[in-house]
Design a protein around this nucleic acid. Structure first.
Lengths: 416, 416
DNA sequence: GGATTATGTGCAGATTGTGGACTTAATGGT
DNA sequence: ACCATTAAGTCCACAATCTGCACATAATCC
């Protein structure tokens, strides 16, 4: 039906622009000669491509490389963050958040707004988020940044831009991106990929990136857990393969394999919270019994304690009820992770969200259970680590995702 | 490190060859004009590409299309299977198998050899398989087929061509592809992708295919469950998204999402057999407790019954012990699948291997458990179906995988 | 200060796709 | 029976892009 399209000269150029720009991103400042060697392109070609990237303001010359070697010194080219940026947005149960991130993944702006979004009408919340986003866009523009696109994190599964079900917001089948309707420019100056018969570049775009969930245009939405996992990928410890476990009101997870998120068939993968931990355990709100969420969800962890900081205080004071809740949660987490490791084969496991501050108390029982259960199946069980970034994971991941789109096809994103 | 390489004219051509050939495969016989319209290439370009594909013998003209329309009738071009074929191989605990499949996915040859491979030395088994493969290659050659490559299914996880661990064979860290050493031609007439600085085509190859586990060359190995899943994909019911559950001595699974297999970080994904079903259940040989395999593995199903056909006979006769075993296994399967559905988000679930003949007795308890547990999380639980192909799933998938490689880059595979 | 060495650019040439003109081969109306 | 119409496939000049080599440039080395 869609039938893959052939490629033409401009796609070749588009691809080579992406290769060169990607190499500059991955291997630090590089001279044109070094780029030529690494990419296999000739110096001539690299020169022309770099010249266009310079014009677009996405790279900058770094001054001569004085490396003490003989011969004419090269001029290194490095990524430049002062022209292109993207917007990350998040709707969560008790706050709205926005950030602006530039091409070098520097966070240029970050703004949070506390809000009681439990069971509110989508229109109201989205209007509130829009005003937050608009002020961020204005500020970015004032700083000379061109915002190339945006992505939105929501607390529930997203399929083709449609938020399927956000139980804690009380939303169902909401077209979040349409409703938000951000004032973003079209993808290129002439919105290349919408012109009839002119979308050849698309044939190469997908290389190395999953296209699922990427709606036409430059504004997309995805599950909070998936985007938080990407946040951990680009702003965290530097690992490229891991399962990010997001402890919020519910428990989600995002699997990153070789730098991209695994979403499953309908974008519903990673629902760690309802993995079976005890087949005859207590009933869960999902309809099942003995799901992980029953033992390690925020409600189970808190019990009658009011908040996570308060829980941490009690744990530090040695409160037996709090310690017991964490021990139970940790062991349940270990069981759920056993199944997850067997099925998903993650490179490591990163605990984020509310699990991050509780990590010292969860780690022991979780690791113990996981190690004992995995037994002979693996040389070593995957490493268990705490997330390096805090509550911002999802917005950062959202903004980073759009940055990735720019790197995947700079020609399209920048109109080159 | 590897650093992605730039693309040149020949990569553009390679890609367009793949696009045209793929379109012919997917959309049946098509005229050059129809191909031009579908691919967005000009009639001129399509003509040249089709001419090369005709020369390579991978497509053939189908005679004039007399569709009653006005104007000159086109000549439809269709896939041709009488030149290029691939080899599928399998080592399992109690048999060896080989098949030859042509470009149209017609099975040209199939040969099985019963063998007691439990705890045998790899060298002996591999030599036996080689002689089986060599006779298949000779026969294929005699039929005028060019064997473009081979793939091998083994009962254990494979990482970069290395069989990590096959517990029932008693093998560990065996370089199966090296040891087998098949007499295959190099990838192209001049083995294009091995020439220094001449591997540009690789830049496009990966589009739409996972490259993990694809060793340089044209002979690769993978887990039996993954390849059986691909067999189900290309030779089964036609679904493009499903979890194939392979009931053999152990229980494995292969997830297919949008036509390609999900392998996880180290190729170990899909170990359904050791998903936690009951945290305090009986000990499993893996070191854990209450794994699915304990309840639904072949040993648990058979009990003191000698074989699967005998078990089926007892089930049909209403033997209560047999019925009880299937009920237990079905319910355990339902629990494990609940976790798998939450984590992997498969489009449907296909039961294969020994589960296929037992499907009538497993289906009820499994579906019931799965439906009850998934509850509100999904509109409908994924469909539970029986595999359409029998014991050949893995060899067919292996051969089909290599066919896919040919379609992914016909220029490389055929030396165009 | 000249030889040496490496960078970056200019120019001719190669490869491949494009676009429109042209040939070919059918249908259909008169 | 004949010619207009329509669509398929091919031919040829042209355009886009990369390559390879020559060359100017700018350092270090002796």
């Amino acid at each position: 039906m869609a039938s893959s399209r052939g490629v033409r000269h401009d796609s070749m150029r588009a691809r080579n622009l992406a290769v060169v720009l990607g190499e500059i991103r991955d291997a630090g400042p590089l001279t044109r000669a070094a780029l030529a060697e690494r990419t296999g392109l000739t110096k001539t070609t690299v020169s022309k491509l770099v010249s266009d990237l310079l014009d677009a303001g996405v790279v900058a010359e770094n001054g001569a490389v004085r490396d003490g070697e003989r011969g004419r010194p090269g001029v290194a080219v490095r990524l430049s963050g002062h022209r292109v940026a993207t917007l990350g947005l998040e709707i969560n149960v008790d706050y709205l958040a926005v950030c602006v991130v530039d091409l070098t993944l520097s966070v240029r702006l970050r703004r949070t707004k506390a809000a009681g979004n439990r069971d509110s009408r989508p229109e109201r919340i989205l209007a509130e988020l829009r005003s937050l986003a608009e002020s961020a866009l204005m500020e970015a523009e004032a700083a000379g940044l061109r915002v190339a696109g945006a992505a939105l994190a929501v607390p529930g599964p997203v399929e083709h831009g449609l938020l399927r079900n956000a139980p804690h917001l009380g939303w169902r089948d909401v077209r979040v991106t349409d409703l938000l309707d951000l004032p973003l420019e079209a993808a290129g100056p002439e919105a290349r990929n919408f012109q009839a018969g002119n979308s050849e570049a698309a044939g190469f775009e997908a290389v190395g990136f999953e296209a699922v969930g990427f709606e036409a245009g430059n504004f997309e939405a995805d599950n909070e857990a998936n985007l938080a996992a990407l946040g951990e990928l680009w702003f965290g410890s530097g690992a490229r393969d891991f399962l990010y476990v997001s402890g919020e009101i519910g428990i989600g997870a995002g699997l990153v394999v070789d730098g991209s998120v695994f979403r499953g068939t309908y974008g519903l993968a990673g629902e760690l919270g309802h993995v079976v931990v005890a087949p005859d355990g207590p009933a869960c709100r999902c309809g099942g019994r003995g799901c992980l969420e029953v033992y390690a969800g925020q409600d189970a962890l808190l019990g009658e304690v009011g908040s996570i900081p308060e829980l941490v205080a009690r744990l530090e004071a040695g409160d037996p009820a709090a310690l017991g809740a964490c021990d139970t949660a940790g062991r349940a987490l270990g069981l759920a992770l056993t199944s997850a490791v067997h099925l998903l084969d993650p490179g490591m496991v990163v605990l984020g969200g509310v699990f991050a501050p509780l990590f010292p108390w969860l780690e022991g029982p979780a690791r113990e259970t996981l190690s004992a259960r995995l037994g002979q199946m693996r040389r070593t069980p995957p490493r268990l680590a705490v997330s390096a970034i805090g509550a911002d994971a999802a917005i950062l991941g959202a903004a980073g995702l759009v940055i990735q789109r720019v790197f995947a096809d700079p020609a399209r994103a920048l109109g080159l």
